[in-house]
Design a binder for these strands. Structure first.
Lengths: 193, 193
DNA sequence: GTCTATAATTGGATAGAC
DNA sequence: GTCTATCCAATTATAGAC
């Protein structure tokens, strides 16, 4: 198989495994087995475990950029775009109940490990933060755009954490509605002014 | 040293280490060194790593119960009690920025590991959930008490996650104020009725 | 109750044949 | 580009002396 193709398969498998089992608990053996590769061959593609993690984070950054672009294409209204973000805790409900938020749980794990890739993982958060900030600026809240972006980000992280802990669907729906009501309130305020 | 005394020391060291480094990344060696004990002696007190985790969770449950009782003693007003809870993200600001919330990060890790002690870790969340629910009921919101408790719990989890990711103090203060404003709004509504 | 010594396993990582 | 064989360090865990 072509070098880049195998590499892509490794990154895809590692991405999923790291999400489901955590970085530390994901071994070379596990990833190699998932791809159907020998451990020896593995080292031809990645020299160290940290290299795989870096590749996975890069891949997630690209995927996230694509998703944000997609939301921009699908919705012209900033408020509707923000709603797309808010609803991912429902869209990815099953995964979040089982494994939490991929960004939040990875960032938390890397913080505890003092891992060198920690800033890159946090950059995933920054991607959402900046994108949400841009939408709030477009809504006419330039001065508080970043604060509002962080609020939405934090709120959805909290929902993800408790959804994972309790597996309660009603709770997720209720909190999403609460956050959407808050957003609607912001929107009406900007429309009024 | 007396059996129970050494055991208590082990649990205290393991508690802190698991919080700072995560459960999987905390080895017997690390805990033994922290207590100043040989690895061999260690097995006299705890047969398996899972046993230590169970003891740590039990200890956290007791500590939490004590903290909740303390808040009840210090504040008679339910709203003030809830405010004590909301402010722990500031009170424990430094730890949360470095290691996240001890309950949220442990629950998330154990979920990914499919660890048998997962329910016990979630019980820590339930402790706060029920206590907050009791306070909201006392505030005259019996019907929505649990939903409001979960809201406060989720909100503070979100703050902890982002505080850990970004290390932003302003953000924490702002979000705590936002949550306190929400609480004040609830209180005024119950006062009016 | 604490120690040293050691087994058994798994982890990351390398060398070299094909 | 993929394999097998191997190394080394760290991990959980046990046996038995003191």
């Amino acid at each position: 198989m072509a070098r880049s193709e195998t590499r892509a398969q490794i990154v895809a498998a590692a991405d999923r495994l790291i999400y489901e089992r955590g970085f530390e608990h994901t071994s070379f053996t596990t990833i190699a087995e998932a791809v159907g590769l020998s451990r020896g061959n593995f080292y031809y593609h990645f020299k160290t475990k940290d290299e795989i993690l870096a590749a996975v984070i890069d891949s997630r950054i690209e995927t996230t950029r694509g998703m944000l672009r997609c939301w921009e294409d699908e919705a012209a209204e900033p408020a509707e775009r923000i709603r797309r973000f808010i609803r991912i805790v429902e869209t990815n409900g099953a995964d979040i109940r089982d494994f939490g938020c991929p960004v939040g749980t990875l960032t938390a794990e890397l913080a505890k490990l003092h891992h060198p890739s920690r800033p890159e993982a946090a950059a995933l958060f920054t991607l959402f933060r900046d994108w949400l900030g841009t939408q709030f600026t477009a809504l006419g809240h330039a001065a508080e755009a970043d604060a509002m972006a962080l609020h939405v980000l934090a709120f959805s992280q909290g929902i993800a954490t408790l959804a994972n802990a309790f597996g309660n669907e009603d709770f997720v729906r209720r909190e999403v509605e609460r956050l959407e009501a808050w957003l609607a309130d912001c929107t009406s305020k900007s429309a009024r002014s």
